[in-house]
């Protein structure tokens, strides 16, 4: 179904001509991102002796178009394509493709007028370790406003749903598909321009729902004893089991951007999470260097 939607979107984007009416297909979206990330807890393990650190190179592109509905409303339709490569954990390498649709509405005319944005996206992740391949869909709602040329704020609510394939049952009466997951996340973003070419973004969020964790065989027994696992199966990547359970987490981060030009920026970001299930803690952080391009 995702394949059909993908090709349908390509057809829509390329075939509809620009019209000279009030509502019409307007500017194109062409964006690309290259990032290098150091991840200190790739398997989201609750056990210090089990955490796997690695570096990831990711390249992603988006291609799409805006449709201007009125002077204050527009929506966009875009196709996303990305690829991830890990230095050590090659089995987690993946190619992903998907679509994203967004609707943006400004509540009037003016720089400081608030806006709202609704986003829907669906991505198919084709992971080298087949068992980890899954489809991930997101729905988001964002409210934001510029308060001055320097300062803007946004608050975003996101619902994410993941669907994967079932693996072998390792514990009787427990699902063998930990990749079927759902979670909510609410995040606040603060953007502050330090200088004309420097932007600081701080984010603070709260996540609640399923998490995916992998640990070695020794630690599986501890997890089984202490936590309420909702699904578990044998893991091809980290050598033990991969499981899901309910947890909540505080997510926080900082991003500094340097504008290389009107269309390009270099970002350094640090993001961390501190999560807790019933008993076990799940913590991690990553450091990203990103090159962003937008047409």
């Amino acid at each position: 179904m995702l394949n059909n939607s993908f090709y349908l979107c390509v057809f829509i984007l390329l075939s509809l001509p620009t019209q000279a009416n009030n509502s019409q297909w307007v500017e194109w979206i062409a964006a690309a991102q290259v990032s290098v990330t150091n991840i200190d807890n790739l398997n989201i393990s609750a056990f210090n002796n089990d955490k796997v650190a690695d570096n990831r190179l990711a390249i992603s592109t988006s291609f799409g178009r805006f449709y201007q509905i009125s002077s204050t409303s527009r929506f966009h339709l875009a196709l996303d394509l990305s690829t991830d490569k890990h230095r050590d954990t090659e089995l987690l390498d993946e190619t992903a493709y998907g679509i994203n649709i967004g609707f943006r509405h400004k509540f009037g005319v003016g720089f400081k007028v608030p806006y709202m944005q609704i986003g829907l996206n669906s991505t198919s992740h084709d992971v080298k370790a087949d068992s980890w391949s899954r489809n991930i869909s997101n729905a988001s709602f964002e409210l934001g406003q510029h308060f001055s040329e320097r300062l803007s704020l946004a608050a975003k609510l996101n619902y994410s749903s993941s669907n994967g394939s079932s693996g072998p049952i390792v514990i009787e009466d427990i699902s063998g598909n930990p990749f079927d997951q759902n979670h909510w996340q609410a995040t606040v973003y603060v953007d502050y321009m330090l200088e004309q070419n420097w932007l600081l973004t701080l984010n603070l969020g709260y996540r609640d729902g399923d998490i995916l964790s992998a640990c070695d065989k020794n630690n599986v027994d501890i997890v089984w004893e202490k936590e309420n696992i909702t699904a578990i199966t044998k893991d091809d990547i980290f050598g033990g089991c991969v499981y899901s359970l309910k947890a909540s987490a505080v997510m926080y981060g900082a991003n500094i951007s340097y504008a290389l030009s009107n269309h390009t920026a270099l970002d350094l970001a640090i993001n961390a999470y501190s999560g807790q299930a019933d008993v076990l803690d799940y913590k991690g952080k990553n450091l990203m260097l990103v090159f962003n391009y937008s047409y």
């Binding site: 979206i29 320097r150 321009m193 004309q196 932007l199 970002d267």
Partner: peptide
């Protein structure tokens, strides 16, 4: 003042807003 105008360069696309 330091600033001539507000931010135009792309933001890190984790925000997914164009």
């Amino acid at each position: 003042k330091t600033l001539l105008k507000s931010w135009r360069a792309p933001k890190n696309n984790r925000r997914r807003g164009y």
